[in-house]
Amino acid sequence: MGKTSKDKRDIYYRLAKEEGWRARSAFKLLQINEEHNIFEGVLRAVDLCAAPGSWSQVLTKSLRQNAANVDDVKIVAVDLQAMAALPGVKQIQGDITKVSTANEIIQEFKGLKADLVVCDGAPDVTGLHDIDEYVQSQLLLAALNITTHVLKVGGVFVAKIFRGKDVSLLYSQLKQFFEYVTVTKPKSSRNSSIEAFVVCQNYSPPSGYIPNMVNPLLDHKYCDFNQFTGPNRFIVPFNACGDLSAYDSDTSYPLILEGQTMYEYKEPVQEPINPPYKDIIDKTKKLQIKNS
């Protein structure tokens, strides 16, 4: 496979490298904002499961336009893994299921709460769709749980979801905390992928709700107003986002794009760090069963 194959296979992968984003997912957040104006008036934002940091990059770039003084903009990125430093982003290497992490965030905002919390985290997928969907929904609910500690009332929460067989259970849980819940799919997210994003607006926790990290939030069960099958299923509105002129992630583009005269190969902005299979290849190469 040639060096350029990946550039051809995926337009956003290539554009991300050309525009200096650490991952193609940067475009997803930009396109969500185009449709939902989630950055409007935001000064304090939290990026959960931030590595490799492309959403933090987008936040820094976009939020600076909201303040006369750049120092008023505060962005906190949280991840279990270490992430290469980003100017203007405070990094917390921590677990989003811990109260201490929530406190660290608040401290960073000098006691104030966040206007916006975003989460683009995805689990290690197993290939069994129901497990993957469940683990993703638990990751989202863990993100929601910490969000209930750090988000101001009226704030916005954006997170990745997998639209599988039980996604309506997750919607009904989210709807308890936010007035508006919409599912959106950016043009930079592939049509063939089950990934989408929930945009939850106007944070308004149920009266008397006390944020609590000891018990994880769990998703709901099927019930009368959200049946397993049938017309009474809890389905939230969907919209597609991204400019009409935007590139389409399913379309194959030539290396020289319309309006361009030349193409130059660019290296990825940020190489991956320590995958689990890192030192395995050598070990298995020497392996052979002896017949004796």
């Binding site: 350029t4 296979r9 194959s252 290396l255 193409y263």
Partner: peptide, 13 residues
């Protein structure tokens, strides 16, 4: 593959 020139056409499915 080493001295192959870059093929500018899109990959197609």
């Amino acid at each position: 593959w080493k001295n192959c020139t870059v093929d500018f056409d899109p990959e197609t499915r």
